[in-house]
Nucleic acid binder design. Structure first.
Lengths: 126, 126
DNA sequence: TTCATATATTCACGAATATGAATATATATA
DNA sequence: TATATATATTCATATTCGTGAATATATGAA
């Protein structure tokens, strides 16, 4: 199989993994370091199982790595630069006049929020 | 709706559009300039309608723009830098020891193939 | 003009895949 | 043990995919 077929397929897989709002937000929330599932669930405001399932997708595709500590499981980015690369892709949302103004201003906000490393919150360790 | 929700959703949409091998290859093949549907179909080695349908997805999501000329429809990237950004993302495939050696060498090849602008082939114009 | 051809898009269908919600199971800690 | 936490499984639904047929649309020839 030609190299470009292999890579196109694998890249498409990576894009597929990232083509979900929850999972994108998880990646961005992990940009500053590891977090446990509960902490992520609260940040996302979705159900526990949904968080866990999306983390499983990310883990199976080697986007995140887990570290168990007591009854907590902490997740972190396997390749922290991934978060910056994703954020960089936001510029392609600005295109086109058809794009809503709401989106354009949201981009500015998100660049503030996601654009700088953040010290992980409430990291309960034991 | 918080900015990060909006952006996560839109970004996820973009990733979804790009989460298909054919569409990724189309974007990369267009890095050097416009091509008509037939030319793309031959490059990809897939059916005509499949090519056209994937172009429609890219078009509806403002990734590509069409230009009609006679009986040909030429497509080009709306934001040419998109191809470079995607190629940049290839580095995240190198990760992890579980990754097959075949992939690693394919990455090198693809960086050669996609890494430099290419002069569009056989552009039949009238 | 009419007809044949080349090009591109759209449609309909079944197959495959993804998704979300709910539940069940497993594990670690107290 | 009981409880909190995390993962796995199941199921119903929704979405996406690929193919082949049908439908434009444009061009050139008769």
């Amino acid at each position: 199989m030609p190299a470009r077929h292999i890579i196109a397929k694998e890249l498409a897989g990576l894009f597929g993994v990232l083509s979900h709002p929850d999972r994108l937000r998880i990646v961005e929330e992990l940009r500053g370091g590891e977090r446990d599932v509960n902490s992520l669930q609260e940040l996302l405001g979705v159900s526990h199982s949904r968080t866990s399932q999306n983390l499983a997708v990310l883990r199976l595709n080697r986007v995140v790595i887990e570290r168990r500590d007591g009854r907590h499981v902490f997740y972190r980015l396997e390749q922290p630069e991934l978060a910056a690369w994703i954020l960089d892709g936001v510029r392609f949302l600005e295109q086109g006049s058809a794009r809503a103004e709401a989106t354009r201003s949201a981009i500015a906000v998100v660049r503030q929020i996601w654009g700088q490393p953040e010290k992980p919150a409430t990291r309960k360790r034991r």
